[in-house]
Nucleic acid binder design. Structure first.
Length: 721
DNA sequence: TTAGGGTTAG
C-alpha cells in the first residue's frame, strides 16, 4: 500500500464524505472512481450507509447506471435513500427505457417492504411524465395521497407534470395547481409548459402574469423559456415582444434557453427579421439556437436561407444535432431540393449519426418527396420494424410520385403487419384511390376510417370528399363535405374541383360564392377550378369577369393553368380568333405557348377551322413540341386540305425529333379488379365478348339517330401509321 | 448526515 492510500484510509469519514459530494456535484467521474476503489480496498465502502448511498448517487449522477446498480447491490442493508438514489438516477435520464427501470425498481422496493418517502415519489412521477402514463400516474397519486405526501411541493410539482404531459388531463392539472398548498417557480413552469404543449397561449400567459404579480422574485429563466415557447401564433406576437423585453430587463436573456425560446417564438409567429435579430444578439449560441432559426426559415418557406444558415453553422465549427439535421432535411423535402438533401445525407453519414427512426424518417421523406422513390424505399427497408410515421412517409411518397398502385400495396402490407394507421396515412391512401378513381377501395378505406374512430376533420374529411367526388359519387362527396366540422381552403378547392370535373359547373360556382361568403380567401387553385367550370359550362362572360377579379380583387397573378382555362373556354365557345389574340397577348414563355396553342389546335379541329388550326399547329412545330398528338392533328389537317407536301414535312419533323406516339389506354374497376385496355390489344380474356357488346351498342346508337363524325382530322390513328 | 420537481430545437 502506498503512502497516499494510507492517508486516504486514515481519513475521517466526514472528510471522505465531503469529497464524494464534491465529485458528485462536479460530475467528476475519474476522481470519484479512484476514491471508490480506495474505499473498496480499505474496506470502508460498506461500513457506513451514508457513504455507500453516496457512491450509488455519484455513479447515478454521472449517468453510469450499471455501476450505480452494482454499488447498490453491494449494500447489505438498503434503506430508502439507497433505493431513491438508484430510482432517481434512472428517472433523471429522461428516456423511456430508464423510466421503465425506475418503475420496476419501485415495485421491488415495495416488495421488500421499504416505505417510499416524498423523494421516491418525485422520481416516480418524473418517470411517469416521461412515459406519458397518466393511468399509473393516478394510482401513484392515490398512494402518495394515502401517505400524506401531496403537500410536499416537490411531489406536487412532479405529479402536476404527469397530468400536464398527458394533454387530455390538463383540466385535472389546473385544478391540482389551483389547490396546491404551496406553489413556486417550478410548479408554475410546469403548468405553463402544459398549456404550451396544447397551444393554449392565453392560459399560459395568464399563469405567467399571476406569477409575475404574486411571486415576482421567483421568476427565473425556466419560467421565461416556457412562457416564450407557448407563444407560437402571429396574433400573440405583441405579447411575445413584451415578454422578450421583460426578460431583457430582468437579465434573463443571457440564459441560452431564453434566447433560444425568443428566436423560436419570433420564427413561429412568422417574424423572421425579429428572429434573426434575436439570434444575432444572443450572447451564447448552441446547436438549438441555430436549429431554431434554420427551422424557422424552412417553415416560413425560405429553404434557400435555411440551407445557407446550415452551411454557415458548419463553417463556424458548430456540430449540428439530429434535430438540426431533421429540420434541414424537411426544408429540402418541401422544396424539392434533392441535391442539397443528398449533401445533408452525406454529411450526416460523415458525422457518424446512427440511423435512428426520426432521422431515417426525415431521409425517406426527403427522397420520396424529391422524386427519388427507390432511395426512399431503400431507407424504408433498412428498418425491420418501421413505425407509422415511416410507413406514412413511404405511402405519401408513392402518391406524390404518381405510383398510386404501390401506395395502395404499401397500405395493405402495413395493415397485414399489424401497424395501426393514423389520419395522415388515411388521407394519403385516399388520395391514391382518388387518382385511380378506385371507388370500391375508397369505400373500404372509408369503412376503416369509421372503424378506427377517426373524425371527419381535415385532412381525412377533405381527402374523403375528394375521393368520392373524383370517383363520380358527387352526392357522397358533398355529404362528407357538409358533415366536416371545419373546412380549410384545400377542402373547398377539392370539392369545387370534383364538381367541375363531373360536369356540375353551376354547383361549383355556387360553392365558390359560399366560400367567399364564409370569409375563406381563395388561392390560385380556386381560380383554376372556377375558370375550368366556366369553360365547361360555356360561361364566357362570367369567365372573363372571374379572370379579372383574380388579380384585381385578390392580387393573384394568373399562371399557365389560368391562361389554359381561358383559351379552353374561348375555344369551346367557338371564339377561336379571340383565343388566338389572347394567346398572343399572354404567351411570353415557351411552355405557355406549347400548352396554349395545343388547346387552340384541338378547338380548331372541333370547329373544323383548318386554316387557324394549321396556324396553331405551325406555332407548335416552331416551339419544338414533343407531343405526338399535335403532329398527328396538324398532319391530318394538311391532309384534308390536300396539302400533301406539308403532310410529308410534318411527318419528317416528327421522326427527326424522335416523337413517338403513346398508345391510348383506358381502365375500369369491376368487383375490386382492374381491367386495362390498350388500343388494338387482344389481351383481355373476354375480348371477343366485349367487342360483340360494343358492336351491339353502336348499332343501338345508330338506330337512335346517332351519326358518326367521319372528319379525317378526328382519326388520330389514321394518316401517320 | 446521503436521495427529489420545471425550460428551448422536432
Amino acid at each position: 500500500m502506498s503512502n497516499g492510500s494510507i492517508s486516504i484510509a486514515l481519513e475521517s469519514s466526514s472528510s471522505l464524505f465531503t469529497k464524494i459530494l464534491h465529485y458528485t456535484r462536479c460530475k467528476n467521474l475519474p476522481k470519484g472512481q479512484s476514491l471508490h476503489s480506495h474505499l473498496i480496498k480499505t474496506g470502508s465502502s460498506s461500513s457506513c450507509i451514508y457513504i455507500a448511498n453516496s457512491i450509488v448517487n455519484l455513479y447515478a449522477k454521472c449517468h453510469r447506471l450499471s455501476d450505480a446498480h452494482l454499488a447498490f447491490q453491494e449494500i447489505q442493508t438498503k434503506d430508502v435513500v439507497s433505493w431513491n438514489s438508484l430510482i432517481n438516477g434512472y428517472s433523471q435520464l429522461g428516456r423511456r427505457d430508464s423510466s421503465l427501470s425506475a418503475l420496476n425498481l419501485f415495485k421491488l422496493m415495495r416488495q421488500e417492504n421499504t416505505l417510499p418517502n416524498p423523494h421516491t415519489f418525485a422520481g416516480i412521477f418524473t418517470s411517469l411524465s416521461t412515459l406519458g402514463d397518466s393511468f399509473t400516474g393516478k394510482q401513484a397519486h392515490c398512494l402518495a395521497f394515502k401517505l400524506g405526501y401531496l403537500s410536499d411541493v416537490f411531489v406536487g410539482s412532479s405529479l402536476l407534470n404527469v397530468y400536464c404531459k398527458a394533454g387530455h388531463h390538463l383540466g385535472d392539472a389546473r385544478n391540482m395547481f389551483d389547490e396546491m398548498p404551496e406553489r413556486n417557480s417550478v410548479s408554475c413552469t410546469t403548468m405553463i409548459s402544459g398549456y404550451a404543449l396544447q397551444r393554449m397561449v392565453k392560459e399560459a400567459v395568464g399563469v405567467f402574469s399571476v406569477m409575475l404579480l404574486k411571486r415576482g422574485e421567483d421568476v427565473n429563466e425556466f419560467v421565461f423559456t416556457s412562457v416564450l415557447s407557448a407563444i407560437a401564433l402571429p396574433e400573440f406576437v405583441y405579447v411575445g415582444k413584451q415578454i422578450h423585453c421583460l426578460s431583457l430587463k430582468n437579465g434573463f436573456l443571457s440564459a441560452v434557453s431564453v434566447a433560444n425560446a425568443t428566436v423560436t417564438m419570433y420564427a413561429k409567429c412568422g417574424r423572421l427579421d425579429d428572429a434573426c435579430r434575436a439570434f444575432e444578439l444572443s450572447s451564447e449560441k448552441n446547436s438549438i439556437t441555430w436549429s431554431a432559426l434554420i427551422t424557422g426559415y424552412a417553415q416560413n418557406g425560405d429553404c434557400e436561407k435555411a440551407l445557407k444558415l446550415f452551411s454557415e453553422m458548419h463553417y463556424r465549427g458548430m456540430i449540428p444535432s439530429e434535430y438540426t439535421l431533421v429540420g434541414v432535411l424537411n426544408a429540402c423535402s418541401d422544396f424539392d431540393a434533392l441535391r442539397e438533401g443528398k449533401q445533408v445525407h452525406g454529411y450526416l453519414v460523415k458525422l457518424g449519426f446512427e440511423p435512428q427512426m426520426y432521422i431515417l424518417t426525415a431521409l425517406v421523406d426527403m427522397y420520396a418527396k424529391c422524386g427519388n422513390i427507390s432511395d426512399a424505399r431503400r431507407g424504408f427497408e433498412y428498418l425491420k420494424e418501421p413505425d407509422i410515421v415511416l410507413w406514412t412517409s413511404m405511402i405519401a411518397g408513392y402518391v406524390k410520385n404518381g405510383d398510386n398502385e404501390s401506395a395502395k400495396g404499401m397500405y395493405c402490407r402495413m395493415l397485414m403487419e399489424g401497424v395501426m394507421p393514423n389520419e395522415l396515412t388515411m388521407a394519403s391512401v385516399l388520395k391514391a384511390c382518388s387518382s385511380l378513381a378506385a371507388l370500391e377501395q375508397g369505400k373500404q378505406i372509408h369503412a376503416h376510417i369509421v372503424k378506427h374512430g377517426f373524425s371527419l376533420e381535415v385532412p381525412i374529411g377533405s381527402a374523403l370528399s375528394t375521393m368520392y367526388a373524383k370517383s363520380g359519387s358527387l352526392h357522397d362527396g358533398n355529404l362528407v363535405f357538409r358533415r366536416m366540422p371545419a373546412r380549410d381552403l384545400v377542402s373547398w378547392n377539392s370539392m369545387m374541383s370534383g364538381l367541375s370535373q363531373n360536369g356540375c359547373g353551376t354547383e361549383a360556382l355556387e360553392l365558390f360564392e359560399e366560400m367567399l361568403h364564409e370569409g375563406t380567401r381563395p388561392d390560385y387553385v380556386t381560380f383554376v377550378n372556377i375558370l375550368s367550370a366556366c369553360s365547361h359550362m360555356g360561361l364566357v362572360k362570367r369567365g372573363w369577369s372571374i379572370f379579372r377579379m383574380m388579380s384585381d380583387e385578390f392580387g393573384i397573378e394568373p399562371r399557365l393553368e389560368h391562361f389554359a382555362c381561358m383559351v379552353d373556354m374561348l375555344g369551346r365557345a367557338g371564339e377561336l380568333y379571340k383565343a388566338k389574340e389572347f394567346i398572343e397577348s399572354a404567351a411570353s414563355h415557351v411552355d405557355h405557348g406549347l400548352c396554349l396553342w395545343r388547346i387552340l389546335l384541338s378547338a380548331c379541329r372541333n370547329y373544323r377551322n383548318y386554316e387557324l388550326g394549321a396556324y396553331a399547329g405551325e406555332k407548335l412545330m416552331e416551339l419544338g413540341s414533343q407531343e405526338s398528338s399535335a403532329y398527328v392533328l396538324l398532319s391530318n389537317i394538311y391532309s384534308s386540305l390536300g396539302r400533301l407536301e406539308d403532310v410529308e414535312r410534318v411527318r419528317r419533323l416528327m421522326n427527326l425529333r424522335g416523337v413517338s406516339k403513346e398508345p391510348g389506354c383506358s381502365w375500369i374497376e369491376l368487383k375490386s379488379q382492374f381491367h386495362v385496355f390498350v388500343v388494338g390489344d387482344q389481351l383481355h380474356p373476354q375480348i371477343i365478348h366485349i367487342r360483340d357488346e360494343l358492336w351491339k351498342l353502336t348499332k343501338l346508337m345508330k338506330d337512335e339517330g346517332y351519326k358518326p363524325d367521319f372528319d379525317p382530322c378526328l382519326e388520330l390513328e389514321g394518316v401517320m401509321d
